[in-house]
Design a protein around this nucleic acid. Structure first.
Lengths: 209, 209
DNA sequence: CTAAATTCACCCTGTTTGGGGGAATTTTAG
DNA sequence: CTAAAATTCCCCCAAACAGGGTGAATTTAG
């Protein structure tokens, strides 16, 4: 009778929490917790046997950390959807987890029904996120409004970041190469860098472009 | 008695849809639709008078388009939260809207209760997104698994993208400058580019790094 | 085990970039 | 109106980069 239930694996080092999740998830007929692990290594070792469609993953684990585990699992089987479930709302961790391949990221203050909603979401091809996480993710697209660069400088930097040379930039902006160079010099001085790629790196990091 | 109700403005060119939204939003005591517009220009003109906390914005509008309107409104008052409400699930538009400053993005097949939930979400500092949109946004963080580059080449490219020079890359990887150069030449050939910044631009676009 | 791919290394030459100046005109903000 | 910022243009020189070619040791995949 488990033929039509989605297979879920839980990786969570706190036994009480892990067993709690199991009960919640098994309480609905759509899902079925095939196994729970208190570390990533064991979960990975049994991947082929467990054949989960979904993994609920803690980040703070003994031994291999959750981020590396996500990358490893995604490499073994890209079809598995991983939902991070952690106390951390630290932006570094969130982006690392998503880059590693997490499909969703929910924090531990989530209610039982929201946990089940999150699983429903990934099953339906969505990306469940807690409120704060979603905000962080969306904000990461938005430019820094306090850019030290002038409009023209930003325009030049934008073209630089597209891989354009001085002369190509000059052409596109209908100015001479020397003027483009002058803008670039000013950009370097404002950003305190001294090369194209450094400028692009810094501008990307600070969301100036 | 409207003192404690959040002020909402609706920008939507379809009269029936706009009036429908008004009814739904006004049906809950937390919100209050101060005004509805069938174009962005009028909405912007009346921003100071309307003083909305939230704007529900269509993208397909006569005259100024929704993306530019979002940017303009955010520039005038960064505190206003904009929720895009559109039929488009096109990735270009989604990212443009978020880059312009949208706090949320929901598609038009959303139910009345989900619309109200979305407004609740932004009020609480979240970023409401339809399922597909959230997936697109999260996927945008993930690397392309079919990179033509070798591991070493990816490593070199990563350092390039951080603004490092040939010699710095050589140092960090414990190889000679000439070897680093050799890798970079191979990268250029594989990506069909011929400069650092072009390589970075292409690699970023194709999510190779 | 063999072929292919990756990693490493060197040389030479021409182009692009970066750092140092200086200077005029137009816009913007107080 | 006026001072500051932004935008435009120019020159010279040194350093970094790109393109060409060559060759060998080491891993990886079939």
């Amino acid at each position: 009778m488990n033929y039509f239930r989605s297979r879920v694996v839980i990786v969570e080092d706190n036994d009480a929490v892990r067993e709690g999740f199991s009960l919640i998830i098994n309480s609905v007929s759509k899902y079925y917790v095939v196994n729970g692990y208190d570390n990533a290594e064991d979960a990975i070792k049994n991947l082929k046997k467990d054949k989960p469609e979904i993994i609920l993953m803690d980040l703070e684990l003994p031994g291999m950390n959750g981020i590396d585990a996500i990358a490893a699992i995604k490499k073994m089987n890209p079809n598995i959807d991983l939902i991070v479930n952690t106390i951390y709302e630290n932006s570094e961790l969130v982006f690392q987890a998503l880059c590693a391949g997490a499909a969703g990221y929910i924090t531990k203050n989530t209610s039982h029904s929201e946990l089940l909603d999150a699983i429903d979401e990934v099953i339906n091809g969505g990306a469940p996120m807690s409120s704060k996480i979603a905000k962080m993710v969306v904000s990461s697209f938005q430019k820094n409004p306090n850019s030290p660069l002038s409009n023209r400088e930003t325009e030049v930097l934008e073209l630089l970041s597209q891989g354009k040379s001085y002369s190509m930039i000059a052409q596109e902006l209908f100015i001479t190469k020397e003027t483009a160079k002058s803008h670039i010099k000013n950009i370097y001085s404002k950003l305190q860098v001294n090369s194209k790629s450094e400028a692009i790196a810094k501008a990307t990091k600070e969301k100036l472009i």
